[in-house]
Design a protein around this nucleic acid. Structure first.
Lengths: 188, 188
DNA sequence: CCTTTTTTATAACACGTGTTATATAACAAG
DNA sequence: CTTGTTATATAACACGTGTTATAAAAAAGG
């Protein structure tokens, strides 16, 4: 049994780069084969259906995105930092952003379900501590910031325009301050 | 010169309905012809390139969207009302929403350019009056609400899930209150 | 009613993509 | 070195879409 020259991982990596550079709609047997300098057979050998390959690329993109968001130094400003990273991702990886959020590959969970997911729990706890708020209050601020960041990011990813990160940061910060003060207002 | 049984407008209308019901990616000569109960020729007769038809459908969708947003009774709550309409549109017309904002047909203007567009000026003035704020302050609140609404709407349009308008309205209202108080904070 | 022009129908071709068939090449085991 | 399995190459088919060719049908003007 000769071992494959073209491994499954090589196929995924090539497809990921195609998706990243030109969009996931360009992931197909022939384009990936061309990038690997081989025929379409190695691709079809590892993935009987192209759909499977796209799913694998989606999952890789999802991991990359999560890692990208997590890259926050200051634990005091986790929410703001993650929000900014969310938008920066859209600026630097618009094709991946669109693949992740506009291609129908995402598992369909509603916003409110997402808020209660196990993955988010520890992050919300960290934010909660840094912001000196209850988990419920933190969630409220988070929803506002998440929607704001997603909206901003969506516009950027779909219009491939230059955006000044300073301006974006200023807008995000204002939204953040507002969301926080809205929570304090509710108490009074 | 016999008059056409299938008019240009009938073609656009049929294409609009296809886009609205099943997505703009399904607008093609054969699907439109089938809906009109004719061959592909009447379609190609009025639109030599399918791209032209899609552009016409885009413009119709754009007008429909604008009209949808404008349907606000209470002039006191224009901004909130328009924000809610923006999200409601995504709930009820997800395919049109995606066509309008995620298909690459939108003319590429940056957010800040859009804020200074002539179309928006009168609306901002109305909001400004109702909110007892300067135009600059109104713009600041508007950016926050617009991004929030667009983010919320994008998530809804891309996940085809049921959303409770009451819940959405509550979230939007909180974001609105926060954005307003953030502006007042800046003054102090 | 006939002619001319316009509108429509039918059919075909080009091209990209998914997928499959067939055969060759390469390697591990004996 | 032979052999059998595996990995790859080449080629082909199916199918959907854009587009074009050709000709028939239909109406307006005379």
């Amino acid at each position: 049994m000769p071992k494959a020259k073209i491994t499954r991982e090589m196929v995924i990596d090539a497809a990921f780069e195609v998706a990243r550079e030109t969009g996931a709609e360009n992931v197909n047997a022939r384009s990936i084969a061309a990038r690997l300098g081989c025929s379409t057979q190695p691709v079809m050998y590892h993935f009987a259906r192209i759909e499977e390959l796209k799913r694998a690329v989606y999952e890789k993109a999802d991991r990359y995105h999560t890692e990208y968001l997590m890259n926050v130094k200051d634990p005091e400003g986790v929410m703001l930092g993650m929000g900014l990273n969310y938008i920066r991702f859209a600026i630097h990886e618009p094709h991946l952003f669109r693949f992740l959020f506009q291609s129908g590959y995402a598992v369909g969970s509603s916003l409110l379900e997402m808020m209660d997911s196990a993955d988010l729990k520890p992050i919300l706890d960290i934010m909660s501590g840094a912001m000196k708020m209850s988990t419920e209050q933190t969630k409220e601020v988070f929803v506002t910031i998440a929607m704001f960041a997603h909206g901003y990011a969506s516009i950027i990813a779909n219009n491939s325009l230059e955006y000044d990160e300073k301006t974006v940061a200023a807008h995000l910060e204002r939204a953040y301050k507002g969301a926080v003060s809205a929570v304090w207002e509710e108490i009074k």
